[in-house]
Amino acid sequence: MFDHTSRYANLETATLTTEDGRTVIYVRRRFPPPVDAIQIVAEVTVNDPDRLDLIAARTVGAAEQFWRIADANGALNPFDLTATPGEQVRIPAPGM
């Protein structure tokens, strides 16, 4: 259902039968891993006009992997990580 690099790739699917008899297949909720369980390999300083996808492209090698950095920093809103220039952003080890 999802690309193997997606944050949703390993989630289970579930089904729901509606009152009118339709079956809806959906992906179960994703819970981010605990921040202290993620191995950190670097920290980078946010510069203006950095975006998380640009940081991911430079550090992780793929812009669409921005969610790994958000997880490593405990950010539910990835935009919060680049809102303040000068802040440090933790970069996770590959595959974390």
Rank of each mutant, 00 (worst) to 15 (best):
A62T: 14
A37Q: 14
D50L: 00
T5A: 07
V46R: 00
Q88P: 09
D3G: 04
H4V: 11
F79R: 11
L81H: 01
E19W: 06
R28I: 15
H4A: 09
Y26H: 04
A72D: 04
A93R: 08
D48K: 14
E43Q: 12
N47Y: 12
R7W: 06
L76D: 13
G61R: 04
P78C: 06
T15H: 07
E87R: 08
A9D: 07
F66M: 05
V27K: 09
Y26V: 04
T18I: 14
A83Y: 07
L81R: 01
I69N: 01
A37I: 15
A37V: 15
A14M: 11
R29K: 15
Q65I: 13
F79L: 12
E19G: 13
R29N: 15
N10S: 11
I38R: 04
T13E: 13
T18H: 04
F2N: 07
P85V: 08
P33T: 11
Q88C: 09
P78T: 03
N10A: 11
E64L: 14
T59V: 06
V27D: 10
N77T: 02
G95R: 01
D71E: 10
I91R: 03
P92T: 08
T15I: 14
T5D: 12
T5W: 09
E87L: 04
D3H: 10
T59Q: 15
N77D: 06
I91M: 04
N10F: 07
R90K: 10
D50H: 01
P85D: 04
E43V: 14
A70I: 03
R51C: 15
A56G: 02
L76C: 07
L16M: 11
T13A: 10
D80T: 13
A37E: 14
A57G: 14
T23G: 05
I91H: 03
F31M: 12
I91D: 02
S6T: 10
P34Y: 08
G21L: 02
G74H: 02
I55T: 02
W67T: 05
E64A: 15
E87P: 00
D80W: 09
T18G: 08
T18R: 07
V89I: 03
D3V: 05
T82D: 01
F2W: 09
A9G: 06
R68P: 05
R58L: 14
A57L: 15
V46S: 00
A14C: 12
R28A: 13
A14E: 12
P32E: 03
T5V: 11
L52G: 00
P78F: 02
Q88V: 13
A63M: 06
A75D: 00
A93G: 06
A93H: 09
V60W: 02
V27P: 13
D50S: 00
Y26L: 04
N47Q: 14
A9W: 07
P34S: 05
A57I: 06
D53C: 03
P49L: 08
A93W: 05
F2Q: 08
V44D: 07
T45Q: 03
N47P: 15
E19N: 12
Q88W: 04
I38V: 13
E12R: 11
V46F: 00
E87Q: 08
F2P: 11
E87T: 12
N10G: 14
I55R: 00
I40G: 03
N73S: 05
I91P: 03
A37M: 14
V89C: 00
D3K: 07
V60N: 03
